[in-house]
Computed example of a mutant assay.
Amino acid sequence: MSVNIGIIGGAGYTGGELLRILVNHPDVAIAFVHSKSQAGKPVYSTHTDLLGDTDLLFSGEETSELVQQPGLSALFLCSGHGESAKFLETNNVPESVKIIDLSTDFRDESNGFVYGLPELQRDRIRTATRIANPGCFATSIELALLPLAKAGLLTADVHVSAITGSTGAGQALSPTTHFTWRNNNVSIYKAFTHQHLTEIRQSLTALQPGFDKAVNFVPYRGDYTRGIMANVYTAFEGSREEARALYQDYYAGHPFTHVSDAPIDLKQVVNTNKCLIHLEKHDGQLLITSAIDNLTKGASGQAVQNLNLLFGLPEDRALRLKAAAF
């Protein structure tokens, strides 16, 4: 089986990460990689790690023609937030072409999209035609909390402190992504107002409909490139052993989310599609530490995981990636 895919917005970080995975996917053929800014140039001229892996050129053709080409199976939308909605308004994508959108535009499941967190709704993803890929912070925080929500045990406010690497801000330069500002520096941004809070609450209430407590989220910018560590705590009456059993049971059969008895660190997950979770109990509070790579499990790796589910392939196909570790 060959799944013919196209990528819109292929010059950014998520596009590059998708290509890094898909050039080695045994069941995928890349029909085109579209970029307005890099049209006609080799893909490896932008994503230099792909030198020797592909001779693809960025396409600058009209997207309306690209998405209509015969045999196209799936389309990844990797442009900025707000651009996917505009793209679908101006391009007539055939119903036979499945769409995986990596922006925020359809995470509320509007316009026929299904929220693409496999650990939450794998069966719905398998039968969908349009997938809204989750946000990176949302993925990490939701995976920290879903087992509690499933058991109806979110009975108090949830507190989250999470840090992300600079690639989470995208490729465009801004004062807070410039090396001289970001290096040797840590800062808070969008405290209590981060855009991922909406999808986090949507996912938690899908499992625990009566959940109405606050999710107090303080995000940090870290002085490194990749990875998210989220420290989440909330009231929990049971023991650590009971919590561990709850989490092990929930994630049994999910190939990428694992509960660790030992404390975890970011290097265990960077360059992988894993989420690692560690649990501690302190004075009536359960502390859940969750770690992912924001570009892989938090974006492009999860998008490929969704592609595999959409086309009946093994969920982990091309995603058994090893962390650099040191």
Rank of each mutant, 00 (worst) to 15 (best):
P263K: 06
L19A: 00
E119Y: 07
G116N: 03
G82S: 09
L287C: 07
A162P: 10
K41W: 05
A214K: 14
G80K: 05
H254S: 05
E62S: 12
R20H: 10
H47R: 02
T225W: 12
A303F: 05
L153K: 13
S59Y: 04
S79K: 05
L102T: 08
P26N: 03
A169W: 15
T90W: 11
Q268D: 04
S84R: 01
A138P: 11
L77Y: 08
A156E: 14
L145G: 08
R122V: 09
I141T: 10
N231P: 02
R182Q: 11
V269A: 04
G301F: 09
E95D: 14
G71E: 05
K274N: 08
L146E: 10
L204Y: 01
P314R: 09
H194T: 01
A299L: 02
D53T: 07
V93S: 03
V259A: 12
I100G: 03
I292S: 07
A162Y: 10
D261R: 07
G112K: 08
T104V: 14
V97L: 04
G312F: 07
L173A: 13
V259F: 13
A252K: 14
V160G: 07
D249W: 00
E62M: 11
E315R: 05
I100K: 06
L72Y: 00
L319R: 03
E61S: 13
E61Q: 13
